[in-house]
């Protein structure tokens, strides 16, 4: 019987679903007409099948190490990790619009505050560290870090 409160069941089921989607996509791979040996579809197809069975084994046989931590603490910290990931996702959109310095300062500040840093310390550290990173990557290593879109429009 499936232990639905055990995270491994969900990991295994997610693995099975991923394997099915992978196999479906593998079916779409175009095989060249004359293949000597193995074509481009066979290897992924084999991997998808093996992964499906391994995922099923995870769901049916494994036990969840997470359950030792207790539900309340795990839920809170996981939510905070989700918030931090959301900041990183926002960075993907902020970086081209606001440029490296402003986007990085915002994300650094928000990430530090989520981890219960004092606001002032987070703000000062964000500005200091981002300026150092900018100097190292852009000026020293020659990586062209993006500038704000408004400056690009104004051709500054």
């Amino acid at each position: 019987m499936l232990r639905l409160r055990d995270g491994n069941v969900w990991l295994g089921l997610a693995g099975c679903a991923f394997a099915v989607a992978y196999l479906w996509e593998a079916k779409q791979i175009i095989e060249p007409p004359f293949v000597q040996g193995m074509g481009p579809r066979a290897f992924p197809w084999g991997l998808g099948c093996i992964f499906f069975f391994l995922s099923a084994a995870v769901a049916l046989t494994e036990r969840d190490p997470m359950r030792k931590s207790g539900p309340v603490r795990v839920a809170h910290t996981t939510m905070m990790a989700g918030v931090m990931t959301a900041f990183a996702c926002a960075y993907v959109f902020l970086l081209p619009a606001f440029g490296y310095v402003l986007a990085s300062v915002l994300v650094f500040f928000a990430t530090a505050v989520v981890a219960r840093s004092a606001w002032g310390a987070a703000a000062v550290s964000a500005i200091f560290i981002v300026v150092i990173f900018y100097l190292v990557f852009d000026s020293f290593l020659g990586v062209p870090l993006p500038s704000p879109r408004i400056l690009q429009v104004l051709n500054v």
């Binding site: 990430t111 530090a112 840093s117 981002v130």
Partner: peptide, 9 residues
Amino acid sequence: PILNALIML
């Protein structure tokens, strides 16, 4: 918290 934000950035 500052160290962690530094790692992420």
